[in-house]
Amino acid sequence: MKEVCIDINGLTVAAAVDDSTTLLRFIRGAAGLTGTKAGCENGECGACTVIMDGKAVRSCLILAAEAHGASVTTVEGLANKEELHPLQQAFVDHGAVQCGFCVPGMLMASKALLDANPTAGPEEIRAALGGHLCRCGGYKAMADAVRDVASRKPQQ
């Protein structure tokens, strides 16, 4: 067992974990944040994507111990108190949500993209969402939602 401290959505979460505990299991278990979904626990579906130190990562492929000292944002960290994040609102507006299981991962991948490239175009959005699986087939609405946010003039 190892004591691990990870900053998740601005709060430090500390827990003793064994060597095989993934960041995904740490987030869902020790931190109790179940918005991050386990779709395959093998890096194949993207549902568990979170932002770690500014980059979108698949939390099932990272050990909790590796994330010690890192700063992580999960889907629960997106909204600002009562207000949905513009990406969340765009997903709602575009009807991009069906069963919703892939949505947290899609949102976090989109957030990381727009943080790095606020005016991302369709090709960049497709690339960022590549490898994120959605069986309901909502890809187009999601890509449109991200594009919608990316094409807005930056707020003052």
Binding site: R28, L33, T34, G35, T36, K37, A38, T74, V75, E76, L78, A79, L84, Q88, F91, V92, D93, G95, V97, C99, G100, F101, V103, P104, L107
Partner: peptide, 21 residues
């Protein structure tokens, strides 16, 4: 008409609880 889905917001915030949660 196409009003927003009643469950959409909860599914974008991680608040929607599935069985494994």
């Amino acid at each position: 008409t196409s009003p927003d889905r009643l469950d959409a917001a909860a599914k974008t915030t991680g608040e929607a609880l599935y069985t494994a949660d």
